[in-house]
Computed example of a mutant assay.
Amino acid sequence: MKSKLPSFSNTSEDASDILTDVYCAPIFICSTYSGGLNVRPEDLIIEGDFNQNSQRSGTLTFIRYKGQCFAITCKHVVESLEKREEVAKQRYQGLGGDGQLPEQDMTGFYTPILNTRHHCNYRFYAVPQPENGEIDLAITRVDESYIKKLGRKPIILTEKKKIPEIGIASGFSEEQRLLQKYGFMYQFTSKFVRCIATIRTTSGGELFLYDEISEHNGVNNLSGMSGGPVMWLEYKNFGLLGIVKQGYDIKPSPGGFNDSNTIYIRIEKITPKLIEEWSKHLPESSKIPDMTIELYAPQVVL
């Protein structure tokens, strides 16, 4: 299912024809033992206090450049995975364990598709950081077969000298996740969210999308869209501008910066020149064991 957030102004009719979901996929931070089959409704917290059981998720963007395919997400999404692993390790050691974590305590990135949890069997690497500031981006080389397995395809990265006026940010909001019960187990799914707004630039050269919108269509919290593709749109042409770095709540809140429904999304820019530089620091292969899991939940017969 898709949620479209039309802006008041500068919205192109051509935007409805661009299927940006084919270039990205949701990634849930899950146990490699269960693939997230034991997630409970109370674990899908999206605001307030997070704990070790909180089910977090982000978005992967797939690109192709000079015959190679890459998967990209935000560095802070990868850090969330690493933090969960560290908490599990500390808990394990506190109980007297040593050596490698038991399988039920290990975690990884999973994409839910029907009855299957597809494990992202690649290790991500944070891109080299500049002396001033921070690039919130992690990247890895992937085989195109992995992208096809998820029913997606990579977007071809090209140079755009002049940035157009309209942008489309896409991803899988944590707020829009669903749980369906199968027997004694729950399986989760994600809704695709797409935000269309004007591309703007800060005085420091950072890019963001900003517009007041006519309605929020049931979407407010954009956490989980981190790492999703941000496209530039010009007539019927489009291309990749970058990924979602941070999306602010759409509805106005006390003490907030706006008193109306607003799209405000910060962008981490991606260009061919940057990919050239980042890929120099990547190993040729970062594959790890594939822990893809099939769902089998027996129905309760009364």
Score class of each variant (00 low, 15 high):
Phe62Asp: 03
Pro128Lys: 05
Val142Asp: 00
His76Cys: 03
Gln100Val: 13
Phe124Asn: 04
Glu103Lys: 05
Gln55Tyr: 02
Thr116Arg: 01
Pro130Lys: 14
Val87Gln: 13
Arg91Ile: 15
Leu101Pro: 02
Phe62Cys: 05
Ala71Glu: 03
Asp98Asn: 15
Ile72Trp: 01
Glu134Met: 08
Pro102Tyr: 06
Glu47Asn: 06
Asp98Val: 14
Asp105Arg: 06
Ile113Phe: 02
Met106Glu: 03
Asn121His: 15
Ile46Trp: 03
Gly58His: 00
Arg123Asp: 14
Arg123Met: 14
Arg84Gly: 09
Val142Ala: 07
Tyr110Val: 00
Val142Pro: 02
Ile72Cys: 05
Arg56Tyr: 02
Gln93Thr: 05
Leu137Ile: 13
Arg117Ile: 04
Leu60Asp: 01
Val77Thr: 06
Val127Pro: 00
Asn121Ile: 11
Lys75Arg: 15
Ala71Met: 12
Gly97Val: 12
Gln90Arg: 10
Lys66Asp: 15
Glu79Phe: 06
Asn51Cys: 13
Cys120Ala: 10
Glu86Leu: 07
Ala138Ile: 03
Pro130Leu: 14
Glu131Ser: 08
Asn132Ile: 12
Ser54Ala: 11
Gln90Glu: 12
Thr111Tyr: 00
Ile63Arg: 01
Asn115Arg: 10
Thr140Gln: 08
Thr111Ser: 00
Pro128Cys: 11
Arg56Phe: 13
Glu131Gly: 03
Leu81His: 05
Gly97Arg: 15
Asn121Tyr: 11
Leu81Cys: 06
His119Ala: 04
Glu85Leu: 12
Asp98Arg: 15
Val142Cys: 08
Gly67Ala: 06
Leu137Cys: 13
Arg123Tyr: 11
Tyr122Cys: 00
Gln68Val: 00
Asn132Arg: 07
Ile113Gln: 04
Arg64Met: 07
Gly99Thr: 14
Cys69Asn: 08
Arg84Phe: 10
Met106Thr: 07
Ala126Phe: 06
Ile139Trp: 05
Ser57Phe: 01
Arg123Thr: 15
Asp98Ile: 15
Gly108Pro: 10
Val77Arg: 05
Thr116Gly: 06
Gly67Asn: 13
Glu82His: 11
Phe70Asp: 10
Gly96Trp: 05
Lys75Phe: 10
Leu114Trp: 04
Asn51Gly: 06
Leu95Cys: 09
Tyr122Thr: 06
Gly94Thr: 04
Gln129Asn: 14
Pro112Thr: 03
Tyr110Lys: 00
Phe124Tyr: 15
Gln93Ala: 09
Gln90Thr: 10
Pro102Ile: 07
Pro128Tyr: 12
Thr61Pro: 06
Arg64Cys: 05
Asn53Leu: 12
Gln90Ile: 04
Tyr92Ile: 12
Thr61Tyr: 07
Phe124Asp: 09
Val77Phe: 09
Lys89Gly: 01
Thr73Glu: 10
Leu137His: 04
Gln104Gly: 09
Phe70Glu: 02
Arg123Lys: 15
Ala126Gln: 06
